[in-house]
Design a protein around this nucleic acid. Sequence first.
DNA 1: GTAAATCCTAGTTTATTAGTAGGAATTAAT
DNA 2: ATTAATTCCTACTAATAAACTAGGATTTAC
Lengths: 156, 156
Amino acid sequence: MRKVDTMILSTRGRYGIKMMLELALNYGKGAMPLKDIANRQSLSDTYLEQLISPLRKKGFVKSTRGAQGGYELAKKPSEIKVGDIIRVLEGSLAPSQCVLEEEPECSKAEYCATKLLYEKITESINNVIDSISLKDMVDDYYRLNNTNVKRRSENE
Amino acid sequence: MRKVDTMILSTRGRYGIKMMLELALNYGKGAMPLKDIANRQSLSDTYLEQLISPLRKKGFVKSTRGAQGGYELAKKPSEIKVGDIIRVLEGSLAPSQCVLEEEPECSKAEYCATKLLYEKITESINNVIDSISLKDMVDDYYRLNNTNVKRRSENE
DNA sequence: GTAAATCCTAGTTTATTAGTAGGAATTAAT
DNA sequence: ATTAATTCCTACTAATAAACTAGGATTTAC
């Protein structure tokens, strides 16, 4: 039997985004230990370790080793796009191999109407994920939070 | 180790689209045996059987049993959207479970900025896949084909 | 010098994907 | 009527990928 719903993001991408949002919320306040992030999000810290490693190597995160160490964003939240995080942790999101240049799935690629379809889907996804930065998410976070708090007190 | 690139469509969706495109190209010419489709696309016919079954049950394909039987589209190609095929074979494409109503991944969904992100991604994907019909793909198919043939003869 | 942290490699388990196998039911052509 | 070609259905299997875990080396503030 098969899964009912396909998540286009695996836990790598999803946890990675949560993790980076935590770092963005902490931006400018120094290094944050991974264990804190894991605790706040109820995720396995040893698993998050695996995810933050490539983000560091790609220059989105910087680390301070040793006691009192931790991680922080290596760029301003406005300069890190959700697409950056996803591409590091999931690779290119493409609906089919043939959209990626390396190896055409389809032997008659020039006649391939499905390739055209996949390119349209890919473009649409990339447009969205490259238009949203961590700063946008932080803004959303505070906006959503304030709205709810306000609504609650208005009801009383 | 992990795969380098995440395909948002599995073979179910990709083969399903190829199969439906073949049926669309054959539209109006009677039933086409699954074995023919499998041969044309170099795919396993027993696997395609599994994929066409839910498409038939959802009313996108109709079958004729017995010798000289086969499958054909149950609607006009313009009335079948790529999104229909994908949803039948892959389920809802969503970047995260929390976008689907049933079970919120996030305990504090009302404060969840990532949910907002996922909704934007989902909306963008659905917009594309629901705007492209099998007729569009058939048109692309012939347009790509003619263009290439023409270019070839122009070169001589 | 000890505790708290990152860093690194290699496992392990579980779930999902991608098929296969085997046969029952149906029907056109002979 | 028999045969061959087809759909239809259920269950199984193998390969792959996802989701972690384990263990230890290294670094550094206190």
